[in-house]
């Protein structure tokens, strides 16, 4: 019979990821405290793309990649708006998405928040005057926080989330 202790003491299957970023850790731990203080335990985000150029989605996905791994800080991305505290909206809101945006927001439980991420989501960006968009997210939903950038880097998004949480605790 295999001694079960060998499972405990054998080398780990995954290799060590040596990566130190004190600034990121600092933002992350503060964020974690703020989330704990305001929401109790964790912050569940739901992402909604209303017409971005897809780079913002990539940066949001990168938040879960090993360099950032934001689940450590109590942040998760929910698969449904029904499980979300806040809606992250990327891109200027197109006419073709307007209806879906409303439905997604309505599906969220209250209290609910909206965070616009990226220049286009903040105010329509370069698409502001196009026939095909309503403009920034605030044209259709109440926006609680704007994180500008083309696209904002993962670090900037984290800083934005921190600002959002601080705003919420006030």
């Amino acid at each position: 019979m295999v001694n079960p202790l060998t499972f405990v003491f054998r080398p780990k299957v995954t290799e060590k990821f040596d990566f130190a970023d004190s600034e990121l850790e600092e933002i992350g731990s503060t964020l974690k405290k703020e989330i704990h203080h305001t929401l109790g335990r964790s912050l569940a985000l739901r992402e909604l793309d209303t017409g971005s150029d897809n780079s913002t989605e990539i940066e949001l996905n990168n938040l879960s990649a090993p360099h950032y791994d934001i689940s450590r800080f109590g942040i998760s991305f929910a698969a449904s708006p029904r499980h979300a505290d806040a809606l992250i909206v990327t891109g200027a809101v197109t006419h073709n998405m307007a209806q879906a945006v409303k439905k997604t927001y309505e599906a969220m439980p209250s209290p609910k928040y909206v965070i616009a991420v990226g220049d286009d989501a903040c105010d329509g960006g370069i698409f502001k005057d196009s026939y095909a968009v309503l403009g920034g997210v605030d044209k259709i939903l109440p926006v609680d926080m704007k994180i500008p950038g083309n696209p904002p880097s993962p670090r900037e998004i984290l800083k934005g989330l921190l600002a959002f949480m601080r705003q919420g605790s006030r």
Binding site: D49, T50, G51, S52, G91, A92, T94, H95, N96, M97, A100, I126, F127, D129, S130, Y131, A132, V133
Partner: peptide, 11 residues
């Protein structure tokens, strides 16, 4: 498709 139609060509 085309939910994200932003009117790039006209712009």
């Amino acid at each position: 498709m085309f939910y994200k139609h932003r009117g790039i060509e006209k712009l």
